[in-house]
């Protein structure tokens, strides 16, 4: 018997074919825009963080050969902070710059760029992954964050390290935060060099955080001050970073 399509066949096909349109057309009945639903779905981030930490432990992010580096490492985010104090520092090649490390530390300290560059450094060729999907491989030289925290010491109740930056989006200064595991990871550095040259302003001079197992928006540029805190609740809107507060990106950002 040869199959002959009936009217019912076409109706069924039409209904099945229209299903995704209906789904999207009503935005899954408004669910996709609901804050409650979005928060509930976002909670899977905690699961991802715990599972990935379990699987990865202190494992290092992959490091690459010089031949594998991106020919052009694009900039993104802010490429020149509008802050006048920053611009004055930049004009003097950051000669007057000093990094403040304070908050829940035993000994609040200021580090000049020369002092930071005199400390033992780490150079790593790593991949930078933007949350939007692109990747670029570059060479970063800087001081391990753990070295600075060793000098200042951390108080017992310190849980997070916050990075306060010179750049802003519509008047709101950029900030990011990481937990102590990430802060003590050997590849977590404050970079002052990139691709065998001083870190360019477009990439965050004088200091840029590299936290290699996380996405691009965690790699805070133009770091002016580091603060150890017990909780992220009083930072910005309480989600731990500028983009986390502004548009709801995940704080963990490991995937």
């Amino acid at each position: 018997m040869v199959f002959s399509p009936t009217r019912r066949t076409f109706l069924t096909a039409g209904l099945v074919g229209a299903a995704p349109l209906v789904l999207s057309g009503c935005d899954v009945f408004g669910l996709a825009q609901s804050q409650g639903v979005n928060d509930a779905l976002g909670s899977s981030e905690d699961l991802a963080r715990h599972v990935q930490r379990l699987l990865g432990g202190e494992a290092l992010a992959p490091e690459f050969e010089e031949a594998e580096m991106s020919p052009v490492f694009r900039t993104n985010g802010n490429t020149m902070p509008a802050d006048s104090a920053y611009q004055a520092l930049a004009q003097r090649n950051f000669a007057g710059f000093s990094l403040a490390v304070d908050g829940l530390v035993e000994r609040p300290m200021q580090f000049t760029l020369a002092e930071i560059m005199a400390m033992p450094s780490r150079t790593q060729i790593t991949r930078h992954d933007c949350v939007e999907g692109w990747s670029a491989i570059g060479k970063w030289t800087g001081v391990p964050l753990a070295r600075l925290l060793d000098q200042t010491g951390l108080k017992q109740d310190a849980r997070y390290v916050v990075f306060h930056c010179a750049d802003d989006f519509s008047g709101s200064k950029y900030y990011e935060s990481i937990d102590l595991d990430a802060a003590h990871h050997p590849q977590t550095i404050l970079a002052y060099g990139m691709n065998d040259a001083p870190l360019p302003i477009g990439h965050g001079a004088p200091l840029r955080l590299r936290v290699e197992r996380q996405l691009g928006y965690k790699q805070a540029k133009f770091v002016m001050r580091i603060e150890a805190v017990a909780s992220l609740d009083s930072l910005g809107a309480g989600r731990g970073g500028y983009w986390e507060d502004a548009i709801g990106y995940d704080w963990y950002a490991g995937i």
Binding site: Q52, G56, L60, A61, D129, G254
Partner: peptide, 13 residues
């Protein structure tokens, strides 16, 4: 595509 998974399971790359 997960940078943390790349550290945990580099063979994926």
């Amino acid at each position: 595509m997960s940078p943390t998974m790349n550290a945990a399971w580099p063979f994926l790359l």
